[in-house]
Amino acid sequence: MSELLQQAPSLGNTLWFILAAVVLLVILLGFVTYAIYFERKVIGWMQLRIGPNRVGPLGLLQTVADVTKLLIKEDTRPKNADRALFTLAPILAYAPAFGVLAVMPFTESIQFADLGIGLLYYIALSGITVLGVITAGWASNNKYSLIGGLRSAAQMISYEVPLVMSVVGVVLLTGSMNLREIVEAQRDLWNIIPQFLGFAVFIIAAQAELNRTPFDLPEAESELVSGYHVEYSGFRFAMFMLAEYVYMFGMATLITVLFLGGWLPIIPALDFIPGIVWFVLKFSAYVFLQFWLRATMPRMRADTLMSFAWKVLLPVALVNILLTAVIVSYQQGMF
């Protein structure tokens, strides 16, 4: 990929880029299929159940069957819904979740776009997902959807502030927003150690951004049926689920790159193991953490949700920025 990036833009190269993006899309769909399978399986084991085990050997085809069912299911649209926005919402939710992957470096050689502002691109684009959610909630003209959509929007924008602020510490240490340079700067020490506060804020805020336990209020099935996508059925509904898991893929990649040293080995002596193996290991550890949290944590109360973001996470993120700035000046010998 990196040689192609250096060459003059041409139609042939563009076709290669398209092919590479399609390959990533296929890998992504595979990831989503088996992330859902393992989520159900792991939670099953943690709760002393077996989990899906009927469709295919060990239940491996369970998600495939579920998706096929959604694909051949009738697509109903309520008469009172806003037609245009109802159609637009799944696209708005899905497109940015996939678009953010364009800047992700997976290893030294496996990378798509190498933007100087990679991190900013991720943050800007991932903000659009909120629009998809609130559009879906509003367009359905359903009371559950509206409450779910608004709750979700309020939660996502509230947690986005500490999320983007916790990353400023990493940018301070690296002096760059290019994700590849951020990984390279972690050769001696992964950012999780000097940026521990930032990491803690990021990982909590990421849960809320992903609408996952303990912040899954927008989908609180016990009170809101299923939140903003009550009225969605068939493949439109599948798009929301897909967006959620693609976003999880993006977030796992971002955490690996920002805090866990990307494709770098845990100690330099283990350099002979290819970078992609290290990347997948760290990535899977984060994805597993998601499943683990879902099996253990209860849902947060709606009235404590907002104040937690503004009264705890935001001040901690600000303190982290100032502390990091002081430490960086000290290292630079400014005092």
Partner: peptide
């Protein structure tokens, strides 16, 4: 090239 790739991703999305 970078922005061609970004455009491809958004269109695919």
């Amino acid at each position: 090239n970078n922005y061609v790739i970004v455009a491809i991703f958004l269109i695919l999305g």
